[in-house]
Simulated assay, not measured.
Amino acid sequence: MGRDRGVRRFGAALLICAVGIGLLSCSGPTDPLPTETPTPTRARPASDIVPVPIAYAPLRGTLADGAALAHPSIGVKIDNHEEARPQIALNRSDIAFEELVEGGITRYAVVWHADVPDEVGPVRSIRPMDPDILTPFGGPVAYSGGQDVFVEMMMSTGLPNLVFDYDETGLFYRADDRPGPHDVILLAKEGVGRYLELGPPPTQFVFGGTDPLADPAYAAQPTSHIALVFSDARFPSWDWDAATGAWLRSQEGVPESEASGERVRATNVVTLRVGIDWSWGEVPRTVLDGGGEAWVSAAGRTAHGTWSKASREAPIVLTADDGTPLRLAPGNTWVELVPNEGGVTFAP
């Protein structure tokens, strides 16, 4: 019995050793135990970590590097004569306004901030509604010239005015491959760089998710086609392209592309009914003091509401029929300033 007890003790010792060896290594021979305590690796102090300042682009509602947004926007008068097409870098803009000018044609007041191109154009002259459109953004405004009274109106806003007619710094040039006067090109990024002390623009619209009008309270209607009539000479349209999640632009029934070859597109189309003031003779002035009827088209839907603007410096406020803010999807926006006498149609 004593011998059996000794055998059992020896077997138990072997078992304990086997378990210990197994804990050290489950495959192959074990490494020798360290004779010195290893020096622990020093953790990187928080002060050495440089965070990326993420922010929302104020005019697009999209996430971006905050440091890359720390500059002003630039508003530019862009030509829309047939001989001015294709325009440069429209798809990189944050907000583009289409306005009626003399002869029944339209021009654009375009604002770039989140993605300022090296060059934009063709640049054309200022009109009496442009101070009301561009003042709320607070950045420099570029145009080719204009009637003295309209230039004085724009100068009186206090915004930096970059004017081709007066420029002696090389900020503008004439493109050899474009017919005059539709050939003036602006070095936009350089223009912005001259006024970094102004800082970024304030937010203009309220943004929601990628389908901001899905809430039944908006009573938004499915929309595949937007048809607008400014005059007999200008009747742009937009078609919803679900594959790209964008509205695609046409003019007078012809698909419109920009100079890059890309189809002109928008995440949001905001349509405003506006009055026209003919106090300036043949030059119409879009009336933006007050308010009127509005529609927001985003993610293949259109919701109805109203717009208002309290002052020249104030942004346009969009309100749904239920009294809540009309929200836009994150991305670029086109604002169509359609005269009350014009046409607005939304097809399902």
Rank of each mutant, 00 (worst) to 15 (best):
P339Y: 06
Y108R: 12
P339C: 05
G145T: 09
D241R: 10
T324K: 13
I88M: 02
D211H: 03
G158P: 03
A67Y: 11
D241T: 07
E258W: 02
T157Q: 09
P51L: 09
T271V: 15
R85C: 05
G20L: 15
P315L: 06
A89K: 02
F172W: 11
R265S: 13
A46W: 12
G191S: 13
G28Q: 08
T62S: 11
L213N: 02
L248C: 08
G292W: 04
E152S: 13
D167L: 04
G261M: 03
D289I: 14
Q221I: 15
D239Q: 10
A114G: 05
I226Y: 07
P202R: 05
P45S: 08
D183A: 14
V116E: 05
W280K: 04
L100C: 03
L90P: 01
P160I: 03
G28L: 10
H182Q: 13
Y173C: 07
E293Q: 14
V76Q: 02
R42V: 14
C26I: 12
V254W: 02
N80E: 09
P131I: 05
E36S: 15
T41D: 12
G342H: 01
F172D: 07
V274F: 04
A310V: 03
G139H: 11
L33R: 11
W307R: 00
A320E: 10
M153F: 07
T30G: 10
P255E: 01
D183T: 11
G75N: 01
S308D: 05
G28V: 10
F164N: 02
D130M: 07
L248F: 07
T319H: 09
T39I: 15
A219P: 02
D148Y: 12
D321H: 08
P122K: 04
P201A: 02
A84D: 01
P201I: 02
D115L: 08
P202D: 02
G11M: 15
A89N: 05
E168C: 09
V344K: 00
P86N: 02
F10L: 14
V192K: 06
G281H: 07
V269M: 08
G331H: 09
N332R: 12
V163W: 00
R174K: 15
L63D: 09
H81I: 04
P53C: 08
